[in-house]
Amino acid sequence: MKIPLSVNGRTSEIEGHPMERLLDVLREGLGLTGTKEGCGEGECGACTVLIDGEPTLSCLVPLFQCEGRRIETVEGIAAGPARDFLERFVATGGVQCGACTPGIVVTAWALLQRNPAPSREEAREALAGNLCRCTGYEGILRAICRETDQ
């Protein structure tokens, strides 16, 4: 079955099973390996992408639900105006091993689009579905809330 899919501003026809996970379509079909699999069951948030601007777990979304929707992955966000945010994310210690990072970057970027100056509480609420095992979340919150390090 062919399904037209809009990813990072480009539409392509994807040949796939309608129940295929969006995560696999992105990683294996389109080679967009920035989106990570951490648990495969919607608990860790590593596979988060934006669908029509909303953070969504791509391991839980079947391909057929994506027709006509706008999908953005970490690669798309990084190629756009997010550069300052991403550099801040590195500078504040938001990234260590990096495996949770794409999902957190995507989630945080969506938050910053709605709310450019979130409080720590607002950032915590937005990130509640993203697990990080390295940072204690401190560096991530500093980046999102524009707190300087030290």
Partner: peptide
């Protein structure tokens, strides 16, 4: 505390972990 050299590749999704290699 300079930016870590692997930092931008990780935040932009470019870093290649083993499962990203085919």
């Amino acid at each position: 505390s300079p930016p870590r050299p692997d930092g931008f590749a990780k935040v932009s999704g470019a870093a290649r972990y083993v499962d990203d290699v085919t």
